[in-house]
């Protein structure tokens, strides 16, 4: 279990350091706070994600993980601090939000495929209407990604006809069709039956191996060990601890991290 993860983690780190020195960061979050009404849900978040870096966020339920990554493509708005994605700072400006959303793909816990459209239509919708890609080209891209997630034969079915694992792979392909520079995953496997988790994780691992910038909220610690450059632990709306996976798992520092890991890894 731990042998392959060591090697990949090392290579991942190498990539990150290359990129971190050569280009500007993909995501930069500086002193960010968010409130839901009076509820201080995110507190003093500072996080820089380099180009090509893979981050895993873990933490107890309700700790603000979803809220944090939803702020990155402005499904939620923050009240204090800065979020800069691909050099564009997120403000109330709709144009900037559109610009960011085009470059950031998101995969949800409950897939959120469009049930009234076929798989192929789900995949081509945004390329056609957002990017202005000709239909033929969009379909070619879509088929390419469907092959990558290994379900090209389902192209003309409707989402309701697919298993959960297949639906989640379609959802990943749908995001990839926009050729995003960053992918966000919000517990992509936690609504799946155990036997389907692997097929989705495999897709995510291969994405990571190609150097996609990723932020994954997940409790799949094997996945974290294997592909993450950094693991971030959140609790009570703040980042409690972050480290390379090896260090994080073998030598957690903060009491809360230890407690959480002991519960999750038993």
């Amino acid at each position: 279990m731990s042998e392959p993860s060591q090697t990949t983690a090392a290579s991942g780190q190498a990539t990150r350091q290359d990129k971190a020195t050569s280009t500007k960061p993909a995501i930069e979050i500086i002193g960010m706070h968010k409130w839901y009404g009076d509820f201080h849900v995110l507190r003093d978040i500072n996080l820089t994600v380099g180009d090509g870096e893979r981050i895993v966020i873990a933490g107890p339920s309700g700790s603000g993980k979803s809220t944090l990554i939803r702020c990155v493509n402005r499904l939620e708005e923050h009240q204090e601090g800065q979020i800069i994605v691909n050099g564009v700072e997120l403000t109330a400006d709709l144009k900037r939000i559109d610009e960011v959303r085009r470059e950031v793909g998101m995969v949800f816990q409950h897939f959120n495929l469009f049930p009234h459209l076929t798989i192929l239509q789900n995949l081509t919708l945004a390329p056609i209407w957002v990017r202005g890609t000709p239909k033929a080209a969009a379909e070619a891209t879509a088929m390419h990604y469907l092959e990558r997630v290994k379900i090209p034969e389902q192209a003309n079915k409707f989402p309701g006809q697919l298993s959960g694992g297949q639906q989640q792979r379609v959802a990943i392909a749908r995001s990839l069709c926009m050729q995003p520079r960053i992918m966000l995953f919000d517990e992509p496997t936690s609504a799946l039956d155990p036997e389907m988790v692997k097929e989705v994780l495999d897709v995510m691992i291969s994405l990571a191996e190609e150097g996609m910038t990723m932020i994954c909220v997940t409790h799949e610690m094997g996945f974290a060990r294997q592909v993450a450059d950094r693991v971030i632990f959140m609790d009570q709306g703040q980042i409690i601890e972050q480290n390379e996976p090896e260090q994080f798992f073998s030598n957690p520092q903060h009491e809360r991290t230890k407690l959480f890991l002991s519960q999750i890894l038993h």
């Binding site: 706070h33 409130w35 009404g37 009076d38 201080h40 500072n46 409690i240 390379e244 903060h254």
Partner: peptide, 23 residues
């Protein structure tokens, strides 16, 4: 942010929202 990791020493206490949220 450093490569060697980061541990928060002191928890951030909740503070009121910058703009009033009720009223």
């Amino acid at each position: 942010m450093t490569d060697t990791g980061y541990v928060r020493s002191e928890l951030v206490a909740a503070k009121p929202a910058p703009n009033p949220t009720s009223g």
